[in-house]
């Protein structure tokens, strides 16, 4: 059992200025997840008739990408390759002071407390993050063979859960890692190669339009990514982009 002091970002809505509020989390079990710890705090708040802390979460098993908190200056907290919902309290000590903040980036406006609007990521995908295939009328799944290395590399990139921690971590608020993961996932596959050049241009344009910054190669994103998406995919995106330029001239 342990007791903690939380400093949580509270902001009523998008127009509110927001500030830190201090809460004591008492009798926290080591086996709890970080979100379960917040549940306990919230139950107390509700009983006192106060508004509980709003935070995004759904699957609570590290895959939906919904949970989004910066804990002591690190998106998803101190444990590498872990989402907040999979962060357990055994990684904290009795008496710890914990700052909890929302993702911060211009493209992610705050909706309430720790909840931000990440729909900009959806719009990047809508710009071109797909293979233009119709339902039905496709060839047999084994008709086009895919070398295992390519399939594996595509899968490495496809593991991105779209949580936006890369944006939260990036000093430039850049969504480069997210975009690169999608671009490279499709570019590695023969089915996705055909549209690869168009895709990379459209998606990077959308990224700029949404107000994300450019990549200065800080590599913070890789460290914060719960799925360990590698910055080598950013290099891959740049390569695809250059190839696209050379091709179109």
């Amino acid at each position: 059992m342990m007791n903690l002091t939380l400093l949580v970002w509270r902001q009523k809505n998008a127009n509110d200025k927001g500030r830190f509020e201090k809460y004591e989390a008492k009798n926290i079990n080591h086996e709890m997840s970080f979100l379960e710890m917040l549940d306990v705090v919230n139950e107390e708040l509700i009983k006192e008739g106060k508004e509980p802390i709003a935070f995004d979460h759904d699957c609570r098993e590290g895959i939906c990408g919904m949970c989004s908190q910066v804990i002591n200056g690190v998106p998803h907290g101190p444990l590498e390759k872990t989402t907040v919902c999979q962060l357990h309290m055994r990684h904290f000590k009795d008496g710890d002071v914990i700052y909890i903040e929302p993702w911060r980036a211009k493209a992610f406006p705050i909706i309430k407390d720790l909840i931000v609007d990440r729909s900009a990521l959806d719009r990047i995908i809508q710009a071109g993050g797909y293979i233009s295939v119709h339902t039905g009328g496709v060839p047999d799944a084994n008709a086009i063979l895919i070398p295992k290395e390519d399939a594996d590399a595509a899968m490495d990139a496809a593991e991105c859960i779209g949580c936006g921690a890369c944006v939260a971590a990036c000093p430039n608020g850049s969504a480069m890692l997210f975009t690169a993961a999608k671009v490279m996932h499709l570019a590695k596959l023969p089915q996705g190669k055909i549209e690869a050049f168009r895709r990379v241009c459209l998606m990077t344009e959308a990224m700029q339009k949404e107000g994300f910054g450019a990549c200065s190669n800080h590599y913070e994103c890789q460290a914060a990514c719960p799925k360990g998406i590698k910055v080598s995919f950013i290099s891959g995106l740049n390569r695809e982009f250059i190839k696209a330029q050379l091709r179109s001239k």
Partner: peptide, 10 residues
Amino acid sequence: NKNAKPDKYA
């Protein structure tokens, strides 16, 4: 880039 990250973390 600065504009894309207007608010800083505590």
